[in-house]
């Protein structure tokens, strides 16, 4: 059996490399009974389509940034509630709290959850020093989904909608003056060509999840199922470790290229954690009792 695995990010991205290792682990572990072939870079299906493709069996397995589907079900956005879980350790806890519910949601959509790995934490990029939310007033801030638009709104920034492909140019020409993303995005798009300050606020750690089509998965032998799940568990751990290891490197690269990389000031930190309370409440309202249960059990950990 051959499983084509669509993935959205370039082959050299650590998620893609991790998934390639996962595929190799499965191929070896099943002794060729199941062969997973990875297709990075959106070469098979674009990121937006991967989940649906797997749901409908157009692809038997795939990897996707899970929070992209928060419009469909707020639970998918649990890893992207701003300023709720702001470190690798907290993000891991939040994920443990959320996983049972997410597995249920996926199961109801004909998907089998295999593993997930976090991106490096999201930080704020600016063109000037920012000591508090008051300093953000009126800045043109790139919003690419509901949550980032809400952050702009809370902070009094002007949200500008810029697609990923246009980000570099938008920054270079001043269409956008600020955005929130991981250190890796900053390095990848050589953001120092346009911006000057990076604040490591660790707003959230979004995850890429790998899932299989339920029918395809159920058609596997029990041994093969176990191999897939074991390799997945390993890949999840490896991905998180790699992400943490890379984070420091990304921030150093930003600094080496002349950006001011720093922790947020106390004032900024407390301003942002207030946003966090507001947006966590808003998320719980949207996600209903399941959402409240997840947040409560996370806070109890």
């Amino acid at each position: 059996e051959k499983w084509d695995m669509p993935m959205a990010y370039p082959a050299t991205n650590f998620h893609s490399e991790n998934a390639a290792e996962f595929a190799a682990c499965v191929n070896e572990g099943t002794g060729g009974e199941l062969e997973i072939v990875t297709h990075p870079n959106g070469a098979l299906f674009a990121g937006n389509d991967i989940k649906r493709a797997v749901q409908t069996g157009q692809a038997p397995i795939g990897e996707r940034l899970l929070s992209a589907h928060a419009n469909e079900n707020p639970l998918y956005g649990v890893d992207s509630i701003p300023f709720l879980a702001t470190s690798f350790a907290d993000s891991e806890k939040l994920w443990e709290a959320a996983k049972p519910k997410l597995e249920e949601v996926m199961d109801s959509q004909n998907l089998v959850y295999i593993y997930a790995a976090p991106w490096p934490p999201q930080g704020l990029y600016f063109k000037k020093p920012v000591e508090s939310v008051a300093d953000m007033q009126g800045i043109k801030f790139r919003a690419y989904n509901a949550a980032t638009a809400r952050i702009a709104e809370l902070a009094g920034m002007a949200p500008v909608q810029i697609e990923a492909a246009e980000l570099s140019q938008a920054l270079a020409t001043g269409v956008a003056e600020s955005f929130i993303s991981s250190g890796s995005t900053g390095v990848d798009s050589k953001v120092w060509e346009s911006l000057t300050h990076f604040y490591d606020v660790q707003a959230w750690l979004p995850r890429n999840a790998v899932f299989a089509n339920k029918d395809a998965f159920n058609a596997l032998s029990d041994e093969a199922k176990k191999v897939v799940m074991d390799c997945g568990a390993e890949a999840g751990k490896r991905g998180a470790a790699k992400s943490e290891e890379l984070t420091a490197g990304y921030l150093k690269t930003l600094a080496d290229n002349g950006m001011t990389v720093s922790e947020p000031s106390e004032q900024l930190k407390s301003d942002l954690s207030k946003f966090g309370e507001t947006m966590t409440q808003e998320w719980m309202d949207a996600a209903g009792p399941d959402g409240k249960e997840i947040v409560d059990s996370y806070k109890a950990m």
Binding site: P10, T12, N41, A164, A165, S168, Q169, A172, D188, S189, K190, E193
Partner: peptide, 11 residues
């Protein structure tokens, strides 16, 4: 191309 290989599109 730039998005695919992570190079600066401006450049």
């Amino acid at each position: 191309y730039g998005v695919t290989i992570n190079e600066s599109i401006t450049k």
